[in-house]
Write a protein that binds this DNA or RNA. Structure first.
Lengths: 189, 189
DNA sequence: TAGTTGACCAAAAAACTAAATCAGTCAAAG
DNA sequence: CTTTGACTGATTTAGTTTTTTGGTCAACTA
């Protein structure tokens, strides 16, 4: 039971962050949940924020693995862009920790949380940029500023998946694919 | 001097909302600025929020007049879309009242302010929808769900004009036009 | 002695309370 | 009739006390 203490700490913290958010999670609580003395946590992590950072890193890896899993090399490039982005935002709206963090940022404006969510967004853009740059190199799509393009693509999907829901019925994956196809394939005009 | 009391009240309130925001503006202050007894305000407006609503209505009219002013019927449709949207967001980032309200929403989360900014956004989308529907009817662009399209167009411009600046050097009007041309004219692929 | 612990501390946050402020009213004045 | 500002109850703020929390470290195991 008391074998991998580090792993137990990370699991306990993940559970508590997911349930109560970052600020409302105390180190005493994490220690108790992990069946560990509080001091032990500080032998593995410099402080609460570093523990949080490690969990966010795993989260990013998990998200990118999910996106990677959904890509099929034989499908058209735009189809894969849609699949990857849609999966990433689906993850964001289904994964308990992500839901809680987004909520905490909006409602309490916790600084550490805002920073980490920004970090997640940057990592996603970096991941997309790799894909786009590869497609440009391969000649599959014309050259363009890939950072601005990825940034804009992500914002478009966030708009269609999350922002739209504030005032309308949610759009299905197919509807979103349909709208995006216009912009990705032919342009509006 | 004491002729159009209603106008003086609206002007005083506009000045105060622009300078201090909605919450930090008191009705006593507006009355004093307008050289009017506080009771007089309540003969024209049911309450503070209704006074605010009238000012927001004027703001929307002003914004749409600015967008309208910048449109030139002989230019290509996409060029006019860019001009109108860019002008609307330029207005948002230059007009004192808009700056203050956006700041107040972000920093204090004042409910009435959030509602009114949402209203402004809805009005802009409604205005754009009129333009897009007209272009579809004229056969200038292919048919599509114009509400989703307008919503997405606005979000794209907000992303390029405002969101991008959080982590990067601002993009010039020309750079934004360039990026949008890709999506509007030919599509990414 | 290397790894673990929880009592302990300063600092931050929450809870509480008294004082001040504010939106809206209305009797009196013009 | 219109205009006014003193007035009121509800809300906010400011100041203070109490509680909680992140992080440390001397003592304690195994």
């Amino acid at each position: 039971m008391a074998l991998d203490r580090r792993k137990m700490i990370v699991e306990a913290a993940t559970k508590s962050f997911s349930l109560f958010g970052y600020k409302a999670t105390t180190m005493d609580q994490v220690a108790k949940l992990a069946n560990v003395g509080k001091g032990t946590i500080y032998t593995f992590f410099k402080n609460k924020e570093e523990l949080f950072e490690e969990i966010i890193s795993s989260l990013v890896k998990e998200m990118i693995a999910e996106a990677e899993f959904v890509i099929q090399p034989d499908l058209p490039f735009t189809e894969n862009v849609h699949r990857a982005l849609y999966r990433l935002l689906e993850f964001r709206s289904q994964h308990q920790l992500m839901i809680k963090l987004v909520q905490e940022e909006k409602e309490m404006g916790t600084l550490a949380v805002a920073e980490k969510l920004q970090h997640v967004e940057n990592e996603i853009i970096e991941y997309l940029k790799g894909k786009i740059d590869a497609a440009i190199t391969k000649g599959a799509i014309p050259a363009a500023d890939s950072e601005i393009t990825c940034f804009l693509l992500l914002k478009m999907y966030i708009a269609l998946v999350s922002d739209w829901e504030r005032n309308h019925e949610p759009l299905s994956s197919e509807q979103i694919a349909e709208v995006m196809k216009v912009f990705l394939l032919k342009g509006l005009v």
